[in-house]
Structure formats: structure tokens, C-alpha cells
Design a protein around this nucleic acid. Sequence first.
DNA 1: TCAGGTACTCACCAAAAAGTAAGTACGGCT
DNA 2: AGCCGTACTTACTTTTTGGTGAGTACCTGA
Lengths: 119, 119
Amino acid sequence: MASSARRGPYFCGIDAAMDVVAGKWKSLILWELHHHGTRRFAELRRGLPGVSEKMLVQHLREMEEDGLVHREVYREVPPKVEYSLTEHGVSLNAALAPLGAWGTERMARIGAAKVSVDA
Amino acid sequence: MASSARRGPYFCGIDAAMDVVAGKWKSLILWELHHHGTRRFAELRRGLPGVSEKMLVQHLREMEEDGLVHREVYREVPPKVEYSLTEHGVSLNAALAPLGAWGTERMARIGAAKVSVDA
DNA sequence: TCAGGTACTCACCAAAAAGTAAGTACGGCT
DNA sequence: AGCCGTACTTACTTTTTGGTGAGTACCTGA
């Protein structure tokens, strides 16, 4: 029950891809990691205003299982864990780019607000 | 409460796009409509094995609200309603294509099964 | 006459996803 | 001594999502 009940039979490629990106914060995590290269847990948390620690851990674990992110643990005294995109994570991000462009256009069309995030 | 509580402030374009595609069957509806051009309600239902009438109606309504699909009602005696993609629906589908390709690759990688659908 | 097809709506229920709040082990800083 | 920060885990609750099955109004074909 730790991981998700996914990887099921898919209707098509989009279905398979959506399975992996589904989750309130997953695409944002992807973006954050792509943008910053490597991030620590607390950095991600701060970069994603509103995310709960539980969801962040959960999503990161699933994305690790799905081969999208790499988790590097440093056995140090204040714990340190670094997350980064794997090759598959990078290619997924690239595949997501046109969708992002479409979404940006849509935001302009409907005049949607943007969540303010500071780098 | 009929429609969805969406269109909220978005973090980025992907967020905005995902909002519109989120839902178990939406991407499949998009694909079905793109593939066949125009489809009646029952045709869609038959093309999406496993979808419930409730969800199909609900998703179609939301997609109509979001300007992705066009709903043409013929006031005839056995009711007839035709659904087709709008310009925005078509462009969303195009933006989804690379994601679909990525997903297809992933299916091959992990050896995921495909749901059997007959045309 | 009666099942079957059209395109739905409605009420109810189950499951999944996400949020909340607390706890944990350890050290540094003040 | 006491609080902050690290990176989590755990239990519990709420919200959201999706599924089930019935009902509707009308017509067609067997």
C-alpha cells in the first residue's frame, strides 16, 4: 500500500504518461527539479507553496519508483537528501513542454491568476 | 457545484493544462474525438470500455465548459447529440502528442499491458 | 406487447487522494 | 535548557473522484 496501484493496463501512451504525472504536485516537482537541477527536501517544500510534507514525500517516492527522480542520501548528522531528475524525468519534462505552452496560452485566454512564487 | 471548482490560480502552464485534462477519461475522450472527428454519446461510451454514463456526461460537460468540445443537439425524436473537438480541443490534442509518445515509450520500457479496444 | 436504443439525471456509496497535526532522532545555536 | 532545522513517519480526517443502479420520455423493430 506504500506505492500506488498503478502501472495497470493502459489505453494508450497518454494514459500511461498521465498515470505518472497524476498527483497534485508532480508536474510542479518535475518543473522545480528541472529548473534548479538538484534540490534538497526542504528546498522543494519551500519552492512549492502549500504542499504538505506528507504529499511531498509521497510524490517523491512514487516518482522515484517510476524512475523519474533520483534520490541521493547523505548519511550526515543533520540529514541531507538531494533530489534530481533522471534521464527519464528529463525526457518527460521535455514531452510536457508543449502542454505547458498550451496551458500558458489558456491562462492568457481565460485570464487566470498565477500563484506567486519567489525563486 | 455542478461544474468543477477549477480555473484557480495556477503555478504555471502545465498546471493550467493538467487542470483541464485531469479526470480518468478526459484524455481518452480527446483522443476518441480527434480520431473519429464527430461522435455521438453512445458511440463514445462504446469506444471507452469501462466508462460509466455518469462520468462520461460529467467529463463532456466540463470539457464543453472549458471550450474543448462542441456539443450539437438535434431535437429529434430518438435524441441525437454529437460531440466534436473545438479549435482549442484540437490544439490541446496536438500539445498532448509528445506526452503520448513518451508514454508509449514508457509502456514498452516497463512492459505494460494495453487495454484491448476494438474500433 | 415488450425489449431495446436514444441521451441523459438523480441519489447513494465506495475508494482514492489529499490535508492536519503530531511524533522522531539528532545536532547547533543561544 | 529550550528552540530551530534536517528529513522524514504515523494516525486520523476531510475532500474529491468515480462507480452503481435506477428512473425518464419517446420511438422502433420483433
